[in-house]
Simulated scan of single mutants.
Amino acid sequence: MYFIDVQGTLIDDIDRKPIKGAVEFVNSLKNSGIPFVLITNNTKYSTVDFMSYLRGLGFRFDDKEYLDPFATLKDFVDNKKIWAIGNDGFISALREFGYRFDTRNPDFLIMSLKEKLSYDEMAEAVELILGGAKLIGMHETAIYAKNGRKYPGLGAILRALEYATNTKARIVGKPSEDFYDEARKLLGADKYEDICIISDDVIGDLVGAKKLGMKTVLVLSGKYKSADEIIPFLPEGDRPCEIYGSIAEIKIQTNLLKVNRCRH
């Protein structure tokens, strides 16, 4: 059983095209009847649009084999008033979902990644939180790669807001246990120990997954091009069980119980 990250694992962070071997890996799982769920922190596009995009690239999966933070957000917000900060696509998706926007007195402030986030927007976030809005993070990605550089991810931005307001953000995407639990149910797994998760994001995906008991596999096709960029800075217990250059190098295991598991 597999959880498979998308950006940096299945599709390239730069041109958003399939990484070598990615389509074949996913479609082999599909053809073999091995359970999997594509788990993504995508918030730039609506769920329907992003699933359609991935299918257009050749990935074969059912709707129940895909999960993003939009699916779990509704369980926290319900019909309450919100304000949101993020890229235009994220704001448009929230409006399409029918969320009620209120800039003056929102019940929730929902944060997603915004590439050109300004200090004025950070000030706005601080003021809304201090005014009573509960902080929700769409995910907790540590860094993201773009134009050959590494930038602070949403997780880093949320930490700044938490420190400034002495509050704690509720995370609805990876690596929250709520998100992983929803994905586990889609997978049909009784326990996390039966799941192998593949991702390019150690801090934003794999550390939390490993704490839950999953087997963790890092691929060096996205955020990091060398294990030396991140592994030496991690405590021994947080390090991934296995490391590969890309998903093309991973041999599909039909029974994870036969795999040498890492220690937790």
Rank of each mutant, 00 (worst) to 15 (best):
K17E: 12
P18D: 05
P18W: 02
G21E: 06
G21M: 04
E24M: 00
V26I: 14
S28N: 12
L29N: 13
N31Q: 13
S32C: 11
G33P: 11
G33I: 06
I34N: 10
I34M: 06
I34D: 13
F36E: 10
V37P: 03
L38H: 04
L38R: 02
I39C: 11
I39W: 01
N41T: 07
N41M: 03
N41W: 01
T43N: 00
Y45H: 10
S46P: 11
T47M: 01
D49K: 12
D49Y: 01
D49P: 00
D49H: 03
F50S: 06
F50C: 03
F50W: 10
S52P: 00
Y53V: 04
Y53C: 01
L54Y: 05
L54K: 02
L57T: 11
L57C: 10
G58W: 01
F59R: 01
F59C: 00
R60I: 15
R60Q: 14
F61Q: 06
D62N: 13
D63S: 14
E65C: 05
E65S: 14
Y66M: 02
L67D: 06
D68H: 02
D68K: 02
P69D: 07
P69V: 12
A71N: 10
T72W: 03
K74N: 10
K74L: 09
D75Y: 14
D75V: 05
F76H: 10
D78Q: 10
D78G: 00
K80L: 07
K81Q: 11
W83I: 06
W83R: 04
N87R: 09
N87E: 15
D88K: 13
G89D: 09
G89Q: 09
A93S: 15
R95L: 08
F97D: 15
F97Q: 15
F97T: 09
F97A: 13
G98V: 10
Y99C: 07
R100F: 02
R100N: 07
D102V: 04
T103Y: 03
R104K: 09
R104V: 02
R104M: 01
N105S: 10
N105W: 00
N105Q: 04
D107Y: 00
F108I: 00
L109H: 08
L109T: 11
I110Q: 02
K116M: 01
K116N: 14
L117H: 09
S118H: 07
M122S: 05
A123G: 11
V126F: 08
E127Y: 08
L128T: 12
L130S: 11
G132F: 04
G132K: 03
G137T: 07
G137I: 07
M138Y: 03
H139P: 08
H139C: 06
E140L: 05
T141C: 02
T141H: 02
A145Y: 14
K146Y: 13
N147H: 06
N147L: 01
Y151V: 04
Y151M: 08
Y151W: 12
Y151F: 15
G153W: 05
G153P: 09
G155S: 08
A156E: 12
L158Y: 09
L158H: 08
L161P: 06
L161Y: 05
L161N: 05
L161I: 04
